[in-house]
Amino acid sequence: MRIHQYERVWLLASMVLIVGFIATITYGAVGLGITMVDDRGATIAPDEINEDERFGDPRVEQVGDDEYEVYAVAMTFAFQPDPIEIPADSEVTFYVTSRDVIHSFYVVGTNTNTMVIPGEISVVTVEFDEPGEYGLICTEYCGAAHHEMEGQLAVLEDEEFDLTELEVEAPDEVEPDGEIEITATVTNGQLEAIEETVTVELGDETLEESVTVEGDESESVTLTVDAADLGEGDHDWTASAGDLTESGTVSVVEGSEDDTEGGDDA
């Protein structure tokens, strides 16, 4: 068969192009370690999400030095948690599942994008080098308000990121001859110990204490004030740890049914 020389050039060039396509994809997969989302994330019954240890409480969790896991749930028409806060320069693995129909989890402007299928857990591991704010949208048509399904992904500076929580237990009402006990509990969700200065204020009384909270532990600070010292009426209290603040009001009233503890509603 006689093939014209230009035809030969064109055939050869086409071959080079195809080999080039395959070579770049191979380079991405082998050289750079780029992966596609597959079924390694196991399965989960969509109606048992609330009982699941991971997805019952959608959250960010630290699992190692600079290693975090995010358990997120997509549903019509929102993502949980929202916003998702993660640290920069850390390896973050997103585990995403759906409560109802097929959604997607797309970090806008990046290659981080996966389908979210009810019954399946999509697993995506990424590392954000720079802090920033990203939008999160669903790119699979999921219903009438699909266009409103969005979330926020905040990538924070390593120093700004923490999983510290402040919880305060205080009474609503106290007898004039009773004691007011305000307990501030600092919970450290990260693995490394943190130092926090906990301040509890009530009336003129201020308690300031430095606490060291071990990883995955919590520490409590209690301020006790005699109700008689404050006198009858409403008294505001404030508790703070780092940049977290909680506040409330305690009433000193004659004949209150609610005795100290619990902060339960009288």
Binding site: G28, I34, N111, T112, V124, T125, F128
Partner: peptide, 18 residues
């Protein structure tokens, strides 16, 4: 092809990795 793969795809970090 070079633009699509190296600029549009690899440029939009982060890309999920193994």
């Amino acid at each position: 092809w070079l633009f699509t793969y190296f600029v549009e795809f690899l440029g939009n970090v982060p890309t999920p990795v193994v």
